[in-house]
């Protein structure tokens, strides 16, 4: 597949909005899922290590 120019590649034969829109939304969904997972990990670890610390202090 030879697009000829970068502008043609972005244009996607006039369907650029639909093609790139789909890929962009998918990217946002994946980034969001990974971000939420990372946040879940951080808060869980903070909470659980805090409990251990408090238990040690008696």
């Amino acid at each position: 597949m030879n697009w000829g120019s970068f502008a043609n590649f972005i244009d996607m034969g006039g369907r650029g909005f639909y093609v790139w829109g789909s890929y962009l939304i998918t990217l946002v969904c994946i980034v969001l899922e990974l971000g939420l997972l990372a946040r879940h990990k951080r808060t869980l670890w903070q909470r659980l290590t805090q409990i251990i610390k408090l238990n040690k202090q008696g």
């Binding site: 597949m1 697009w3 590649f9 996607m12 034969g13 006039g14 369907r15 639909y18 093609v19 789909s22 890929y23 998918t26």
Partner: peptide, 21 residues
């Protein structure tokens, strides 16, 4: 999806959504 697969004869480029859909 973007540099090897050809343009679709009936749908043109919009078919490239298939690769994620």
């Amino acid at each position: 999806s973007f540099f090897v697969a050809p343009t679709d004869a009936t749908q043109g480029e919009s078919y490239r959504i298939i690769f994620i859909h």
